[in-house]
Amino acid sequence: MIIADKKPIEEIIEAIKDYKKILILGCNECVTVCEAGGKKEVEILASALRMYFLNQSKDVKIDEKTLERQCDHEYLEEIRNTVENYDSILSLACGVGVQFTAEKYHSTPVFPGVNTCFLGATEERGVWVERCQACGKCILASTGGICPVSRCAKRILNGPCGGSSKGKCEINKDLACAWQLIIDRLKALGKLDEYEKITPIKDWSTDRAGGPRKVIREDVKQ
């Protein structure tokens, strides 16, 4: 899922302080699971902002709404009839949701309430870790199911580099060396000989390098 983290409230206030009718728009998908932008976080942020404006003696209306998804036209349509009641939207969805909302409601300012961080998983409650960088050409089949693109600080495809020490990465002693993990896993699979295959130069055109990406599936297109 997409992992996001709450923006500092000071930054949010700086963005919305001049608006009078604000809709805080949550999303019931990834940001709910990573506890950054679901119904609960919408409530907490709304309370905090109401208190802030009250202390400032400002009369600001703050409403709350959480959609099933903000990355889907269908669900975004749910606010079609009420959006004109607001002079701004504070979206707690990921960057995708913020943009989709902004595209749909062209004349309403939309502000992000979270920082979109990465594609990851919940390691334990309150700890989310990166596992994918959506490079567009998955190589997990040859790396024991462990991704050096997202988990090696240098995205090295023939690792480890000289900075791997006692299983940890040179940039941070708490960070596992992806290549140590790959080697351990290849060993567990009885495939350590595969380590000696040189991974060829990667086609990064399916990654960020190729510009904004699009997947078109004629078989499911309507």
Partner: peptide
């Protein structure tokens, strides 16, 4: 460097490269 068991294979890889 670690892991020691791939030190020689890693050199072999560099030679092959």
């Amino acid at each position: 460097a670690d892991p020691f068991e791939i030190r020689a294979p890693r050199l072999a890889k560099k030679v092959a490269a």
